[in-house]
Nucleic acid binder design. Structure first.
Length: 494
RNA sequence: GCCCUCAUCGUCUAGUGGUUAGGACACCGCUCUUUCAAGGCGGCGGCAGGGGUUCGAGUCCCCUUGGGGGCACCA
């Protein structure tokens, strides 16, 4: 295969949020272009005016940018093969449709949607093994003139040749052969005159000089049709590569009903673009060695078409989660802090002003929590107590640490000690604890675990001494006081 | 129903005729530790089935089975 001067393209239709499958093919297009020193084209396939919106367009672009998948030609960037919005290329499609019609390679179909649905159902019921075609293909000129006078609307169908074979040499899968008798006369222009995907996508790829069309496996059966269109139009036929699909846990095509599937939803959960890209790349490709962490740049270097896999893969969030844990501790800490701040403000843990004035304090919290917060939303689990009062105590923990005979006394003791500790920081508190242990023989079970529970409501978390320092003396004393009262009340009640 | 496609642990995969079938996630132990997490160590677990070809098949061929995709005036 010729991989010089590669031009790949990504052609989303702005009819919804950018989902995993889209991102996966976008990434592979990008990877191929970047790896082999080519060009990436972004083209908006907004011919479905019913469902396409400018807002989705904007969001798709935002998601691509967030992932770090850039493009050389297309919306925002421009380029010499524009316009890159299909809605602005109407004239081009009209011309080619006319050409096809005039040369007899396409014909007008006067059937209505209802008639077709009905006929198709009938054909299927009768077990007709042939591909469905309506009668319009074989109409005589006289019949055609008559129909024309009866009906004003018509769609345009491509006249698929009979008894021919068409071979798709898929870059990943090798030759795939199709019998044209299995291909119907597909519609290239709707009765309102608007062109369909089968036409626009095919001729735009040729006109935009795309050398490699990289798309999902679900397009395989479209490919012979599009090859046919370009061939009869005398247009260039690109190379094709059909990537393996991403499936949900139930092994069907990933869709909304599988829960979170859009890039945006994962972004909101607190996943990093690094992990998304890393994960996405490994769904359909692998480096053939034990390396598992790649930045998008590293991917562009290591990538090769030969190492792509053909089998569909099942989406596994646990794996994404694992990668995110890695990237969370690998990327610049300042970026993590920024993400924390945004999250904290968004969730109302702190106000924007507080986030500003307490920046340093938040940074230190991030520092000691980083190992535990694998995705941003883990903040709710691991670090909420820094920003809000303890509302309840972990049930199991309370049973274990608050129900002991001296529990309240021990907490009271720590409270007293803490009130006097100088300096009130990790080292000072640690010294105090060492002394407690030496003088009174009180260990973790008496003075650490119950105190952690009192201060955080949890049985797990960062180092207690550091956590105390960051909470500050006043907060610690208040929470210990409350816990002490709580224990005395509940034990009195029993 | 028709067409296309895919097939190694639960998941992602390495493997291109000779391997005790390797790694990672997840799961389960142990370890470290003030807890949790992280880390370290270990465990569980797989070539869909049947025929060939071959001295020898996860690897090549055929069939079966199973999975996926497509069969719209969506893209």
């Amino acid at each position: 295969m010729d991989l010089n001067n590669v031009r790949t393209r990504f052609a989303p239709s702005p009819t919804g949020r950018f989902h995993f499958g889209n991102a996966n093919t976008a990434l592979f297009n990008w990877l191929i272009a970047r790896r082999y020193g080519g060009v990436v084209v972004l083209r908006m396939e907004d011919t479905d005016t019913e469902r396409s919106t400018k807002e989705y367009e904007r969001l798709i672009i935002a998601d691509l940018e967030w992932l770090g998948i850039d493009w050389d030609e297309g919306p925002v960037k421009g380029g010499e093969f524009g316009p890159y919005y299909q809605s602005e290329r109407g004239g081009i499609y009209e011309d080619y449709t006319k050409k096809l019609l005039e040369s007899g390679a396409a014909y007008k179909c006067y059937c209505t949607k209802e008639e077709l649905d009905h006929a198709r159902e009938e054909a299927r019921r009768s077990g007709s093994p042939d591909v469905f075609n309506c009668g319009c293909r074989a109409m005589s000129d006289d019949q055609r003139i008559k129909k024309e006078s009866e009906r004003d609307a018509f769609s345009v169908r491509f006249m698929t040749p009979k008894n021919d074979r068409i071979v798709l040499n898929d870059l990943l899968r090798g030759p795939i052969e199709f019998d044209t008798n299995d291909i119907d006369d597909f519609i290239i222009a709707r009765s309102d005159g608007s062109p369909t995907f089968l036409l626009t996508n095919a001729i735009d790829d040729a006109l935009m000089k795309i050398t490699h069309v990289v798309r999902g496996e679900d397009h395989i059966s479209n490919t012979p049709k599009q090859m046919l269109v370009n061939r009869t139009l005398g247009l260039h036929v690109p190379e094709y590569l059909h990537t393996a699909m991403i499936l949900g846990q139930d092994r069907t095509k990933l869709s909304k009903r599988h829960g979170a599937v859009s890039v945006f939803q994962f972004r909101e959960k607190g996943y990093l673009p690094e992990s998304m890209v890393n994960y996405l790349a490994f769904l359909g490709w692998n480096p053939k060695d034990d390396r598992e962490f790649f930045t998008i740049r590293e991917l562009a270097e290591a990538f090769s078409i030969e190492a792509m896999s053909k089998a569909p893969s099942v989406f596994d969030e646990a794996r994404l989660h694992y990668l995110n844990a890695y990237w969370m501790k690998t990327i610049d800490r300042s970026r993590v802090v920024k993400m924390w701040v945004d999250y904290l403000v968004e969730r109302g843990y702190v106000t924007a002003d507080e986030a500003e004035t307490k920046r340093e304090w938040i940074e230190r919290i991030v520092e000691i929590s980083a190992e535990r917060v694998k995705i941003l939303s883990d903040i709710d689990e691991y670090a909420d107590f820094f920003f809000k009062d303890v509302e309840s105590y972990d049930e199991k923990g309370a049973k274990k640490h608050f129900s002991k005979e001296n529990a309240a006394d021990n907490i009271a003791l720590v409270k007293t000690e803490l009130a006097a500790v100088e300096p009130f920081n990790h080292d000072g508190i640690e010294k105090m604890y060492v002394r407690l242990k030496e003088e009174k023989g009180l260990g973790a079970n008496q003075t650490i675990h119950p105190v952690r529970l009192a201060l955080t409501g949890k049985t797990f978390g960062p180092s207690l001494f550091e956590l105390m320092e960051l909470l500050g003396r006043d907060v610690c004393l208040a929470r210990l006081d409350r816990a002490e009262k709580h224990i005395r009340e509940t034990s009195a009640a029993v």
